[in-house]
């Protein structure tokens, strides 16, 4: 254990991390966001999903520091009388879950196809890459919208709300695999001809084993960078879909849903309902992106 820690602290990456104060701040912030979301049921002052605890008469309470604010609602309440801080914590839970699950699923699909494409080559490679090309012509948001629209027709509106979150994860994942596939394929093409792979082949290891135990670890660097940045993008995609009204249902609000709800009250002076979730979204995505950006530069020897 100590050895591992020691190795981490001695690494170039750690050295670079220490020298970037912005990245440190971003790491702390995103960690705080993630912890707040994970432990929301323990930390949040209220449970906004428990309808029985809501009181409409609490609605539109401004943040605690303003004249008519109430101490129990630090960031004020929304139109249904839900505590904004609690909805943000629960909302980021939904946003993060969707973002991380979508990226994980995307990675699995992309890496598998990329490895196969790069290692096997030939017609299969062309086919996968053609599909990737076609898909690349449609931006993630459009594909996600299409999948969501189709799900709406197939499942019907009444069933849709219950599975909306899975549909959303799948939609975002299905729209993001191409980048992984391309990166992994590119690296695989390079690795494939390296001596260690040929050596493995000579000693009779199966292609699948070679791909996963030898080639994969060597392409994980760029994939990891991609994934970090992709989490930010996936959270934005989710927020956008929810903002457009085709994401998660308002009974299970994500940050995007909260912003959409609050948007109706922005001009009537109840700015806190939309501004706080908006700030949270930006902080979350920005800190993830800063880390991803730093990782990319730190792992790219050319730019050092």
């Amino acid at each position: 254990m100590n050895d591992t820690l020691k190795r981490i602290f001695d690494s170039d990456l750690w050295y670079s991390f220490k020298r970037h104060p912005l990245v440190i701040v971003a790491a702390i912030l995103s960690l705080a966001c993630i912890l707040g979301a994970v432990f929301a049921p323990l930390l949040a002052p209220h449970n906004p999903f428990d309808l029985k605890t809501l009181n409409l008469l609490d609605a539109f309470t401004p943040p605690a520091w303003s004249a008519s604010g109430k101490g129990q609602f630090l960031l004020g309440t929304d139109d249904q009388g839900r505590d904004v801080m609690s909805t943000i914590m629960y909302g980021s839970r939904v946003s993060l879950t969707v973002g991380i699950c979508a990226v994980a699923l995307s990675m699995v699909i992309g890496i598998t196809l990329g490895l196969i494409s790069g290692y096997v080559g030939g017609a299969l490679d062309s086919f996968i890459m053609r599909v990737a090309d076609v898909q690349l012509s449609f931006p993630a948001i459009l594909i996600a919208l299409l999948i969501d629209g189709v799900a709406r027709v197939v499942i019907g509106k009444n069933g849709h709300d219950e599975v909306a979150i899975y549909v959303l994860i799948f939609a975002i994942a299905a729209s993001g695999w191409v980048q992984y596939a391309r990166t992994v394929r590119g690296s695989t093409l390079v690795e494939r001809n390296k001596e260690y792979v040929q050596a493995a082949r000579v000693i009779g290891r199966r292609p699948l084993a070679i791909m996963f135990s030898h080639v994969l670890p060597n392409v994980m660097g760029p994939v990891f960078v991609l994934a970090t940045l992709h989490v930010g993008a996936a959270i934005i995609t989710e927020a956008t879909l929810s903002f457009l009204g085709v994401g998660v249902p308002p009974t299970q609000p994500s940050l995007g849903t909260l912003i959409r709800i609050g948007n109706d009250f922005l001009f009537s002076g109840e700015w806190w309902i939309t501004v706080f979730p908006g700030i949270m979204l930006v902080i979350l995505v920005l800190s993830i992106n800063i880390i991803g950006d730093w990782l990319r530069d730190a792992l790219n020897p050319k730019l050092r």
Binding site: L51, N55, L56, D79, T251
Partner: peptide, 18 residues
Amino acid sequence: QAIAPMLAKVGINTTPNV
């Protein structure tokens, strides 16, 4: 949206479908 919690409090768990 406002009616749902009120009905929930007396036991009618209402899901608004907008």
